[in-house]
Design a protein around this nucleic acid. Structure first.
Length: 109
DNA sequence: AGGTTGACCATCC
DNA sequence: GGGATGGCCAACC
């Protein structure tokens, strides 16, 4: 299983209304410093799989939606999270201490 | 095989 | 607190 596929498998575990940081996913994979690769993996997620992999629930360590790349994507991401009940403050930040999901099933066989 | 490319992060002014 | 910097590592030429 490639690194990208492992990223997708972990992100698929994040429940609605919760978020996690790129670095959290990387840590759960056993590569705590591969946060950038997690971001890149999600950027290359095939559209056909977007309904199985909740890519929008992964944000940065500051609790913000990444503004890199496509701004259209960022708007969609914000809308999807709002629909799930994730609240962003006046600085476009959400409270990670409330929403952060870390309880990944440690690994699939 | 080496250089480039990032939806990142911690650290330092 | 915000910008700059350097490190990071898998994928893709």
């Amino acid at each position: 299983m490639s690194f990208y596929e492992e990223v997708y498998a972990l992100v698929a575990q994040i429940p609605s209304g919760r978020v996690c940081a790129y670095s959290d996913v990387a840590a759960a994979l056993g590569s705590p410093r591969a946060a950038r690769q997690v971001g890149f993996a999600l950027a290359r997620l095939p559209r056909a799989r977007a309904d199985q992999v909740p890519w929008h629930r992964v944000i940065n360590a500051q609790g913000r939606i990444s503004g890199r790349g496509d701004l259209v994507r960022a708007d969609l991401q914000r809308a999807l999270l709002k629909r799930e009940g994730v609240i962003f403050d006046a600085h476009d930040r959400c409270d990670l201490s409330n929403y952060r999901f870390v309880d990944f099933r440690s690994r699939m066989n």
